[in-house]
Design a protein around this nucleic acid. Structure first.
Length: 901
RNA sequence: GAGCGGUUAGCUCAGUUGGUUAGAGCGUCGCGUUGACAUCGCGAAGGCCGUAGGUUCGAGUCCUAUACCGCUCACCA
């Protein structure tokens, strides 16, 4: 075995081996002859990554998390399925391909729709394999035979089915509405795809001149002067004394001199700005509503790329922002400008391209959401679906309660083409599952399919069931649906999770999953969002190359808790690489011990377990119980930390060191020690496998081989399974089986050993020099008699020269004194002990002991003694006794030193 | 404007049935290397757990208020 864990040498082969052995596939498969429908499966659908994307830490996070969940349930013996796949990501993918083409000087328009889509498919083929390989590198135990892509034939079929059904049910409608328009991408986007950023803007105050030539004007303010061109009214509050007299009159649109009415509406806030509001129904969502209410004209002033159209008169053809400046300058010239003030505003920007979104009226397909949202609200409210952490339930409810209709059409080429045909002769609109070649109403063959495609999320919202074959009632769908767990980032709770619930309930009548676990965002080591411009991006591929997959996984899993962001630094990953190495070396030691030990078959004498044996096994049982409890409450990070702490801090630091002593004793003790080493390591590897699958599988295989070669007596209760990935998960045993006294005794012993080491370090006594000691152990004589050898070895004492006393009358001369857990320790050094120095040390020690005594006496004299549970009070009483006896011994020693003077 | 989260050691964070001496990793300081591991070991220093109240025998943990930081949603021109 190599001296350090060589992850690069094992990861790839192990992954392939797992797959070849079929471990990633559910052992109970509805497509197989021996299928048993009575086993309830555990199912996760992967959040499909963008097919042309590159692996980032967000992917690493969810893959680690979901793989942990899957491996855990698989080890519990549950038929487990993790369905992988990728998303076509309409806008993102189209942008990437367009950018690449533009480098060759080709635009998508030049190429034409057909050719362009071919190009995108070429990209898809090329990059799909890359992202999938990267996900495999993380150890993802997905069933790759069931991999899906949102534009697969089957999933496309599902999309059409859904669209048509919604159309038939009257939920899908088409019409001109106010949408968020992206002038750069030249498509509508949904509300969720708009991000508002706080930016410094200007508030422009100007005059709306009365049309009657009176010279009166209404002062109005706007942040977007160019929209003046589309104004069709000025609104004032009906009770505003300043402007009441103008209501019903007309005013003149600056420069254009179009007459528009002054209207009264309670929507206007008299306190804000000038108290008068210009109304641009075609370019502002609020104005849109007012426009509808008052029957105002809707004047669209923008083209698709946000230049001013012919409605803008002399400004036609100008860019929206150029127009803003020019128009304002012209107004200034005409004396219509009052003032301009800096004004902080939140600017809507495209999530994808970053440019400013224009609210515009456009004919699009919309989905009525209210009827879908209500059942989705109910499903969470009645507990059919639970969200972890629970607080996101509120966020979920809030969004669904205020849901807006979903604009699902996109003016793109890459995606699912809208399955609607328009008859050019009779204007019939045909939504169809099959391609339409002639109008069913008039028989005309002049039918044209809607040129637009559907929002990407319109396919991914079907993911949990479309990937299992829906709308066909496939065996997979029947058995694996509804799925179990939806694990993803909280940032797509609305985008994806809520929509999946809505579609699942509507189309299958069942919630698509019963549990939602939301993880946080991965940030840099100081909590800053990672971005290329900041240069703080950590590339998971490089991290895996340098430190190993397990180290990265363990860092992400242990560093995170549900719903909270995680700050990741390479230092943390390094620390966990070290942990993997620690595992490896502990394993190496144990395997070596197995090889060397002499097998002692069952004889009649029952094995006498040492304190350490009992202690480590009791602690392991506690650990298993805790880990199970934590797993069941989704506290994976805490579970991982506890295993880490146990393995390193107790098993490796203490038991392994003690085992070295026990291995040197009689053959029977040695063999039993090897049995315990083997079994504790085996259990730890099982517990850790969901976190760090590679190092644990690799090590476990070697452990198993060594143990099997040596003796059946080293096997786990149910024997060695074929692989760790499918090995039995350690279930919590009866709590009554705990050996509490072994744990308590071991604590005392450890405390004493630490106290001795402490003094030795303080006095710079080299580890090599073994020294005699005297221990005053009060009622712990049996314990210390039995553990003296171990203590001497770990604290570098001369065992044969070390004396134990229950009480002591005359303290030894020329010694160093220490105390721990009520035990007083006298160390005899080779050198002369300076009594002055020693007195100071003891006085200091006495001081802390005295403060503890005071604290405990006060506590035990308080209502605590009556009101707290007996067990808790007794524990404190015992402590007080310990401190008291320590105090007595130390002050005796102090008096002794004083006598020397 | 509404909602949510955070505030614990120099840094990054654990601490989920409240139990009386608050933990880890990294960093710092000291000592240590003939076989599990220097990707290591043994020790040390370092915190009035944001602030103010409350509940309780007991609060980092529960409640109320408040400050600061962050996030989400909705947005008044």
């Amino acid at each position: 075995m190599p001296k350090t864990y060589d992850f690069a040498a094992v990861e790839k082969d192990l992954y392939q081996w797992w797959w070849d052995q079929g471990y990633f596939k559910p052992w109970n498969d509805p497509n197989n002859a021996d299928f048993d429908p009575d086993h309830k499966p555990y199912v996760i659908s992967i959040p499909p990554p963008n097919v042309t994307g590159e692996l980032h830490l967000g992917h690493a996070m969810f893959v680690s998390m979901e793989d942990l969940m899957i491996r855990y349930h698989r080890m519990k013996g549950i038929p487990t399925l993790w369905v992988p796949g990728t998303d076509h990501a309409g806008i993102a993918t189209q942008m990437v391909v367009e950018r690449s083409l533009s480098q060759e000087g080709i635009s998508r328009e030049e190429l034409g729709r057909e050719r362009f889509i071919e190009k995108v498919w070429e990209w898809k083929e090329k990059y799909h394999e890359r992202i999938i390989d990267q996900i495999r590198r993380l150890g993802a135990s997905c069933d790759w035979d069931r991999e899906r892509f949102t534009m697969d034939e089957g999933l496309s079929h599902a999309v059409r089915e859904v669209f048509v059904r919604l159309y038939e049910d009257g939920l899908m409608y088409r019409g001109p509405r106010m949408v968020n328009w992206s002038p750069k991408l030249q498509t509508a986007v949904s509300d969720l795809e708009v991000e508002y950023t706080d930016e410094a803007g200007m508030l422009y105050y100007f005059k709306y001149m009365l049309a009657d030539g009176s010279g009166d004007f209404i002062p109005v303010a706007t942040t977007r002067p160019e929209t003046i061109l589309g104004d069709t009214a000025v609104a004032v509050h009906p009770e505003d004394d300043r402007y009441q007299k103008y209501v019903g009159k007309n005013v003149l649109v600056p420069i254009l001199n179009r007459e528009i009415p002054v209207i009264a509406d309670e929507y206007v806030d008299r306190e804000f700005g000038t108290g008068a509001l210009k109304i641009t129904p075609a370019h502002d969502p609020n104005d849109y509503q007012i426009g509808e209410k008052h029957g105002l004209a809707f004047i669209n002033i923008l083209t698709k790329n946000a230049t001013i159209n012919e409605e803008g008169g002399e400004y036609a053809g100008m860019d929206r922002f150029d127009c803003r400046r020019k128009l304002w300058a012209d107004m200034k010239e005409q004396g219509l400008v009052i003032e301009e003030k800096p004004y902080p505003m939140s600017v809507p920007r495209s999530q994808r391209s970053g440019e400013i979104i224009e609210p515009m009226i456009s004919t699009q397909w919309f989905l009525k959401m209210k009827p879908l949202a209500d059942p989705a609200l109910k499903a969470v409210r009645d507990g059919t679906i639970t969200i972890v952490p629970e607080r996101f339930t509120k966020v979920y409810n809030n969004w669904l309660e205020n849901i807006q209709d979903w604009c699902v059409s996109r003016q793109l080429w890459w995606g699912h083409r809208i399955p609607v045909w328009y008859c050019q002769d009779c204007d019939e609109i045909i939504a169809s599952r099959e391609d339409v070649t002639s109008c069913p109403k008039c028989g005309s063959s002049r039918v044209e399919q809607d040129p637009d495609v559907l929002d990407t999320w319109f396919s991914s919202w079907l993911w949990p069931f479309s990937t299992l074959g829906w709308p066909e009632q496939t065996p997979d769908l029947k058995y694996f649906y509804p799925t179990t767990m939806m694990e993803t980032g909280y940032d797509i709770l609305f985008f994806w999770v809520a929509r999946m619930i809505m579609s699942g309930l509507y189309f299958t009548g069942k919630a698509p999953f019963t549990e939602i676990y939301l993880h946080g965002l991965v940030r840099d080591e100081h909590g800053k969002k990672m971005s290329k411009t900041k240069g703080n991006v950590v590339d998971p591929l490089i991290v895996m190359d340098e430190l190993g997959t397990d180290a990265l996984r363990f860092t992400l899993l242990v560093g995170s808790s549900a719903g909270n962001d995680i700050n990741l630094s390479v230092k943390k990953v390094e620390a966990n690489r070290n942990f993997a190495n620690k595992l490896w070396n502990a394993g190496r030691f144990i395997i070596g011990a197995i090889d060397k030990v002499t097998v002692i078959e069952d004889d009649d004498q029952p094995t006498q377990e040492t304190l350490a044996d009992r202690w480590i096994q009791a602690r392991l049982r506690q650990l298993v119980t805790d880990v199970n409890r934590l797993f069941e409450s989704f506290q994976y990070g805490e579970a991982g930390r506890q295993i880490y702490d146990f393995f390193w801090g107790e098993f490796a630091d203490w038991y392994l060191e003690i085992a070295k002593i026990q291995l040197g004793k009689d053959e029977k003790t040695a063999f039993h020690t090897v049995q315990i080493l083997t079994s504790v390591l085996d259990t730890c590897l099982r517990l850790l496998h969901p976190f760090t699958p590679f190092v644990t599988e690799s090590l476990w295989g070697r452990l198993k081989a060594a143990a099997m070669e040596k003796s059946d007596a080293l096997s786990p209760e149910d024997g060695w399974e074929d692989a760790l990935i499918i090995a039995r998960w350690p279930e919590a045993e009866d709590a009554a089986a705990g050996d509490e006294s072994a744990i308590a005794d071991m604590l005392i012993v450890q405390d004493v050993i630490r106290a001795i080491r402490n003094v030795r370090t303080e006095k710079n006594i080299k580890a090599g020099s073994k020294i005699p000691a005297t221990l005053v152990v009060s009622d712990k004589m049996d314990l210390f008699q039995s553990q003296l050898g171990m203590i001497a070895s770990l604290a570098f004492l001369q065992a044969e020269e070390t004396k134990l006393h229950s009480q002591i009358e005359s303290t030894p001369q020329d010694v160093l004194t220490a105390a721990a857990s009520g035990i007083t320790i006298y160390l005899e050094t080779a050198e002369h002990v300076d009594p002055i120095e020693e007195r100071l040390r003891i006085e200091k020690e006495l001081e802390t002991v005295q403060s503890q005594i005071s604290r405990l006496e006060k506590l035990l004299n308080s209502p605590f003694a009556e009101k707290a549970p007996k067990q808790v009070v007794d524990k404190e009483r015992e402590r007080l006794e310990q401190f008291k006896s320590t105090y007595a011994n130390l002050s005796g020693q102090l008096a002794n030193l004083a006598n020397l003077d």
